[in-house]
Design a protein around this nucleic acid. Structure first.
Lengths: 339, 339
DNA sequence: TTGTAAGCGTTATCAT
DNA sequence: ATGATAACGCTTACAA
């Protein structure tokens, strides 16, 4: 049951390959009867155009590339889930590449994607990337690109991101409204777009409520599993001591919660904790952790939708715009236990 | 910076394309000087063979297909991580497909993979799949296949799996040795290989310690987020009541833990809990959850290694064998808190 | 309305 | 030792 080719159909019907080819797409200037015959035969033989031949020919590969820092990460695996769903629905295959947060791998991945003749590229930048010339070059060659999550202003493409500002604002304001005043913010690399937006939301909420910004409460970094504990200890040693933590990732939330547990500090009795985390993760940590839920799957769906529109030239004139997907603040304080 | 082709090199050096082609692979019967020139030029132009042309030609696509039930799942995303790592290292690209646990999608994914002319296939069966004729057919066409995690005995391929029996045995024995006697086992679909192996390990441990097998303590199913709670309640209503839970997945462990928390049942004070879970997940749930850690990344690495060996005919004569990767029992009872 | 032929990048088979 | 040519499956001028 080898896949049937145009040639097979042609042989079967005693007509030429090109006639078959045209019968399958053009409709004008081809005998309706021939067309019917071809269609019928194609169906009977389960004909599917060979995407590889198509790619070689140069028209379209019906494949898109997706470059993410890590697959084994709730956020990205959910995003890929959304991407895959929509892409397959629209007849595209998905090639996935991981940068492992390394610029060199990002460049190598890009080469792979180009070699595979992807019709378009979806990318969330590695944390090491501060130069996007490799992407600009690809773009100038005419490959549509859409950025999501970790985006660069230096690269002029559509962007699909979570509403990090609003999410951080809501989280911070919630903490302020429940009486917290010393809100520590544990976050990731300061040059990332998402970091900056979250920090801005945090500061805006503080400002609105007349609480001065204290930079000693804000810590940036790539913290390993064993580094969060000491960091939390350090922050708790400050005078006056923080009465809440607002963390920027799953890992930071988990580390922070573990450290607080170890110190037997009750949440939310003595200290509050809100993280930018996935709801699944938050569920696991419930009831101690409130969360700013990031709609990763939806971001994936929207991003790939825009990319495919671009590929199919549906919005040729539309300028690169940024789509912001709302985040949701999910508050859980059902228990006073340490968790 | 369009990718250079053989033709570009040929033009540059004023020689024929076929000479260039041979210079790049054969070594015999070609002028060393020409060869040097070609090599040098290829390097200078950053020549990379076009995998698409290669695929069309029919030799090899340098791509493998990976079919898994879900990407957004700690276990599979880790496995993919390992797969990607090794595959890329050995010069292969990875095409990922999700079945969403549906047989029809599995068949469709297979077609996609075939259309893309993958050199080989790595698959973890969907829970709906009980007929593997689609895979047998592909295999008979000469495509190497390796199964991992959820495998079928009806499909004669190498298999790479976690040592589910030993893991379940160790977990159950640990519970028995700490005095538990009524160990409930919450698990997934009964026809899956992994389910059966775990159940066998559970039963073997009971038998070794002279505890009769009570089938009312074992529950199979695809439990939704809201179904685990009632199930735990139901089990706890049994007489005599279970004094431990042994669960077969992340989700079951989380659901079970949540239910126990809600009932304010201390772990491990009154009830013990061990799950077949990912260590990352277990960390989040610490200190309440002990875990049988599944080496997902390693399984991925080993599985893809075997597949690539098969593709590259390294072990043509070696019979399809099953590789079992050890699991690790990680016991955590650091606290008596409900968690 | 349909057929012929070239071309996408590569390799294998024949020449030379 | 090297070059021309066909072939992989498909599209698309260009002929007929």
């Amino acid at each position: 049951m080898e896949p049937a080719t145009l040639k097979d159909i042609a042989r079967e019907l005693n007509i030429s390959v090109s006639t078959v080819s045209r019968a399958l797409r053009d409709s004008y200037e081809i005998n309706p009867e021939t067309k019917r015959l071809v269609m019928e035969c194609a169906a009977r033989l389960h004909y599917r155009p060979n995407p590889i031949a198509l790619s070689l020919k140069g028209s379209s590969s019906k494949a898109i590339g997706v470059i993410v820092p890590q697959i084994a990460n709730y956020y990205f695996s959910q995003a890929i889930n959304g991407i895959e769903e929509v892409a397959n629905q629209r007849g595209y295959d998905v090639l996935i590449f991981q940068t492992h947060e390394a610029y060199d791998r990002e460049v190598a991945n890009l080469r792979q994607a180009v070699a595979r003749r992807v019709d378009g590229l979806l990318i969330s930048l590695s944390s090491e990337t501060n130069n996007v010339s490799h992407l600009q070059e690809l773009q100038q060659q005419g490959t549509p690109i859409v950025q999501f999550d970790r985006v660069s202003a230096a690269l002029d493409t559509p962007r699909v991101v979570a509403d990090n500002f609003a999410g951080a604002f809501a989280a911070t304001e919630h903490l302020l409204l429940s009486g917290r005043r010393r809100i520590a913010h544990l976050t990731i690399q300061p040059w990332l777009s998402i970091t900056q937006e979250r920090l801005a939301g945090y500061r805006a909420a503080l400002e609105k409520h007349g609480v001065p910004y204290d930079e000693s409460l804000v810590r940036f970094g790539t913290f390993g599993p064993d580094e969060v504990g000491p960091l939390v200890d350090e922050l708790l040693a400050l005078e006056p001591r923080p009465d809440a933590f607002f963390t920027a990732s799953d890992r930071l939330a988990v580390g922070c919660l573990a450290a607080l547990r170890q110190l037997r500090i009750a949440i939310p009795g003595q200290v509050s904790l809100i993280g930018f985390t996935n709801l699944t993760v938050a569920d696991m940590l419930a009831p101690s952790l409130s969360t700013v839920e990031q709609p990763a799957t939806e971001i994936g769906r929207v991003a790939v939708g825009r990319l495919l529109d671009l590929i199919e030239k549906k919005h040729r004139a539309a300028p690169p715009s940024t789509v912001t997907i709302p985040t949701t603040l999910v508050v859980r304080e059902s228990s006073g236990g340490v968790g």
